Simulated scan of single mutants.
Amino acid sequence: MLNKLETRVNEIEALHSKLLLLIGAPGIGKSQLLADLAARRDTSVLKVGAKLGRKLANLPQRQRTLQANTLLRELASAHATDGLLLLDNIELLFDRSLKLDPLDLLKQHSKARRIVVAWPGDIKNDRLVYAELGHPEYQEYSLEGLVPFELNKIN
């Protein structure tokens, strides 16, 4: 599976949006696969919730909304290695109080470098989904222009 992922990571270099989404049920191994890729590429995985959360916690609520994108960009620059950024634990980006569009934000960042992100959701009816319908952070997106890497469908 790691070899297939690495092949896809190399393939996205030529795309306008260099975003690859690791998609699979909780506990299927997205984080471990990212860690394995990081070890192979001699880089690290940016755990967004912990790192960005610490930086945002020092700001008043109004400033968090204004600074979240900038702080994420700074963290991305500090963690990227050879044009590759690995992201995990991105649930904080869906926090309604930050007023972010998580997928759009990731797409913007992927114009500058390849990004592989553990997507904490699923694909349902050819749509990328985060959370369950009715959940306050529920998001649904078109798959158009995305590079999904589904762990539950790869053997």
Results as ranks from 00 to 15, higher is better:
residue 127 R to T: 14
residue 46 L to I: 07
residue 121 G to P: 07
residue 96 R to K: 14
residue 15 L to R: 15
residue 84 L to Q: 09
residue 112 A to Q: 13
residue 65 T to S: 04
residue 105 L to S: 12
residue 101 D to P: 02
residue 37 L to V: 04
residue 102 P to F: 15
residue 39 A to M: 03
residue 25 A to K: 10
residue 99 K to R: 15
residue 144 E to P: 01
residue 140 E to D: 02
residue 56 L to E: 08
residue 144 E to N: 10
residue 66 L to P: 06
residue 35 A to G: 04
residue 77 S to Q: 13
residue 33 L to Q: 11
residue 43 T to K: 10
residue 138 Y to A: 05
residue 135 H to L: 10
residue 125 N to A: 10
residue 123 I to G: 09
residue 144 E to A: 15
residue 97 S to D: 13
residue 72 L to N: 14
residue 128 L to N: 08
residue 6 E to F: 04
residue 52 L to V: 07
residue 93 L to P: 14
residue 40 R to M: 09
residue 76 A to W: 08
residue 12 I to F: 03
residue 137 E to L: 14
residue 138 Y to M: 08
residue 16 H to K: 09
residue 95 D to N: 15
residue 79 H to M: 10
residue 90 I to M: 07
residue 42 D to F: 13
residue 57 A to N: 11
residue 2 L to T: 09
residue 82 D to P: 00
residue 118 A to Q: 10
residue 72 L to R: 06
residue 145 G to M: 10
residue 102 P to Q: 15
residue 119 W to C: 06
residue 112 A to M: 05
residue 52 L to P: 02
residue 111 K to T: 14
residue 13 E to M: 06
residue 80 A to R: 15
residue 48 V to M: 05
residue 49 G to T: 03
residue 23 I to H: 00
residue 137 E to R: 15
residue 99 K to Q: 12
residue 126 D to P: 04
residue 124 K to E: 12
residue 95 D to Q: 14
